[in-house]
Structures are given as structure tokens and as C-alpha cells.
């Protein structure tokens, strides 16, 4: 047997309970040290940030993170010393701020083992898990250095066509962490806008922990347009307004570029500065999520980030360089 991140062995459970609402802290307690974690969302949108801060407060260690294109979520976990292995496809702040400082440092110091993936490889590995198969084939990747980085990938000749293909093993994350706009008490989830890999994560993982901006009735969920992720995939759900801050969770709020700039400056200045300038005030000194909401600016901040709906000028002003008074 070759070493893989997490191979399907035994059926994953389904979750039939009718009420799965829990507190944010209970959700964080369901992520064991050393778990393979799929963090949902992507780049500067719909990252389960409140849940990640709660994980850091409980002192989680030794996580393996897997995913597609990520940024502040994985960088924060690395900065809090929670990660020991990365199978992400991208961790950075795009052209906006650049490389992810905590992620970089942790990888370069050897604290985080670098086992990068790429988006379609990840998709096919999750699909294998969803389909209950041990692997899926892909045509791509062969010839690049990902082959030597992942010796568990197996090159074969297709028995039907003779084509050279690469087999990638099923990936079953221990836990998926997802933030959505709407959920009901059973855990039916509705994602508005790009789902990124969240639906695949939810179907492939053993445990799915969801936070939602707003808890609504099943009838309201249907009226909003229906269910994106059916409840029986979901282990537990908590209502956490502004739970993706400082990433965006439209239509409720846009990306908080000013807070992200502050994060980035602290992270770039080194581990000590990051601890004192960011982790302390925004993670450890905020024992609950409402404390965090006060710390970042309370109702005035929420209203500013929600002002994108007014007109294009307001929306554009959220990305300007100057920090508003």
C-alpha cells in the first residue's frame, strides 16, 4: 500500500438528525489534532474564518490542509502553529498583497511539509472518494515535478486505448469546514455565488462542520432558491453572522481589504509581530465571536462592508488604498 493523504476505508457516515445546531465552540471541538482538513471557500471569499479562529483558541495542532486556491485562511492557521502538512494548490494573496507570509515561513522552516497539489488533481481525488472508488485517472500532470512530489500517483497505460494516464488516490478529508450564507437547523446548506470546492468537500469528507450567516427555516431556504448541500452530509451547524470576515460573504458583506492589509503587515513583520499585532488582539483576546465583532469595529464596520449594495461607487470605494476614517 502506498502512502496517501487519506484513503477511503469503510463507508462514511450520514447524518440523519433533525436538529444539528451547535455553538461555534462545539464545532471547533469536533476537529481533532492531526486531522486532514478541507477548508471551504476560496481566496478572499467565504472562508470559514470564525471557525478557524475558534480552532486556534482551542490550540489545535498538526493539521493537514488540502484544497484549491486559498489565502488568509491557511495563512492564519499556519501563523497560529496549527498546520504540519499542506496539500493546497495555492496559498497567497494574489496581486493584491502577494505571497502568504506565515505559510511561507512555516514551509521554509520545515514546520509544514510541502505536498502541494493542483486543482483538477484535487477534484479527481475527491470525486474518487465520492464515487466510492480507490482512485481516478487524469491525463494531465505527467511530465511535471508533481509526479516526483507525489510518488503515490501511479502512471498506467489505458487498457482500452493505450493512452498514458495517471491514477490519483481517493482523498477523504477527516473534516470539511464550510461557511455558507444560509442554513436550516437540520444542516441543509445554501451557498450563494461560486461554491468553489465546497460541494465536493462536503460529499467526500467524514465530518462536515458548517457555519452560516443566517439560520432560516427549511421553507425560507427553498424560497431563497434551494439547497446546495443536503443536510445528511452535514455533521453540525452554527449560526455565525460575519463568520467569513475579513473575507467576503456576499450579499451580506464584501471583502475587508483594510483589515486584510493590517493582517498582512503584521504577518510580514515576522512571527513575534504577528502574534502581538494580530493573533493576540483578534484571536486570543476575543474569547467569543461577538467579542471579535466588537474588536473589528462593530456595527459601523458591518454597515460599511454591506454598503456595496448602494451603487458601484460605494462598492469600488471598498477597494481603494486609503483607509476610511
Amino acid at each position: 500500500m502506498r502512502k496517501t493523504f487519506a484513503t477511503a476505508s469503510g463507508a462514511r457516515p450520514i447524518y440523519p438528525d433533525l436538529d444539528k445546531t451547535e455553538s461555534l465552540e462545539v464545532l471547533a471541538g469536533l476537529v481533532p489534532d492531526g486531522a486532514v482538513v478541507a477548508v471551504g471557500g476560496g481566496l478572499s471569499s467565504r472562508e470559514p474564518m470564525a471557525l478557524l479562529r475558534s480552532l486556534l483558541r482551542r490550540g489545535v495542532k498538526g493539521l493537514t490542509v488540502v484544497g484549491s486556491a486559498h489565502g488568509i485562511d491557511i495563512d492564519l492557521l499556519c501563523g497560529g502553529g496549527a498546520v504540519s502538512r499542506s496539500g493546497e494548490s495555492y496559498v497567497g494573496f494574489e496581486q493584491d498583497f502577494g505571497m502568504a507570509p506565515n505559510f511561507r515561513r512555516a514551509c521554509e522552516a520545515g514546520e509544514v511539509a510541502v505536498e502541494d497539489s493542483c486543482c483538477y488533481t484535487l477534484v479527481q481525488q475527491l470525486r474518487a472518494a465520492i464515487f466510492g472508488l480507490p482512485f481516478m485517472p487524469i491525463r494531465s500532470v505527467r511530465g511535471t515535478d508533481f509526479e516526483s512530489l507525489h510518488p503515490e500517483f501511479e502512471s498506467i497505460s489505458c487498457p482500452y486505448t493505450g493512452d498514458r494516464l495517471l491514477l490519483v488516490p481517493a482523498l477523504v478529508p477527516d473534516v470539511a469546514l464550510i461557511h455558507v450564507q444560509y442554513a436550516d437547523r437540520q444542516g441543509n446548506l445554501r451557498v450563494e455565488g461560486p461554491p468553489v470546492a465546497d460541494v465536493l468537500f462536503a460529499k467526500a469528507s467524514r465530518v462536515v462542520l458548517a457555519t452560516a450567516e443566517r439560520m432560516v427555516s427549511t421553507e425560507e431556504l427553498l424560497a431563497l432558491g434551494g439547497v446546495t448541500i443536503p443536510y445528511f452530509y452535514v455533521t453540525a451547524v452554527a449560526e455565525v453572522p460575519m463568520g467569513a470576515h475579513p473575507t467576503a460573504c456576499y450579499p451580506f458583506y464584501a471583502y475587508d481589504r483594510f483589515h486584510t492589509a493590517r493582517y498582512y503587515e503584521a504577518a510580514k513583520a515576522g512571527p513575534d509581530a504577528f502574534r502581538s499585532e494580530y493573533l493576540q488582539p483578534f484571536v486570543y483576546d476575543c474569547p467569543t465571536h461577538p467579542d471579535y465583532l466588537q474588536q473589528i469595529g462593530g456595527e459601523a464596520l458591518r454597515a460599511r462592508l454591506a454598503s456595496w449594495t448602494k451603487d458601484t461607487g460605494h462598492w469600488m470605494s471598498l477597494y481603494r488604498e486609503e483607509v476610511p476614517a
Binding site: S68, A69, E88, S89, Y90, V91, G92, M99, A100, F103, R104, C107, E108, V114, D116, C118, C119, Y120, T121, I138, R139, S140, V141, R142, G143, T144, D145, F146
Partner: peptide
Amino acid sequence: GNCNVTRMGRDALTLKLPGGGGGCNLSCD
């Protein structure tokens, strides 16, 4: 026309780059 956005340093890692997203797959496909 090969590109590196993964890591600098052939043996020892000297600089961890952000990674390529789906670029590896799409460069082939």
C-alpha cells in the same frame, strides 16, 4: 516554457512560492 510557482531551491527549499492552482493540469490540457 516550463514555469515554477511552487518552490525555489532544487534540493533544500529556499523560498516557498504560493503554488500553481490548477495551472499544472491546464498546462497539459
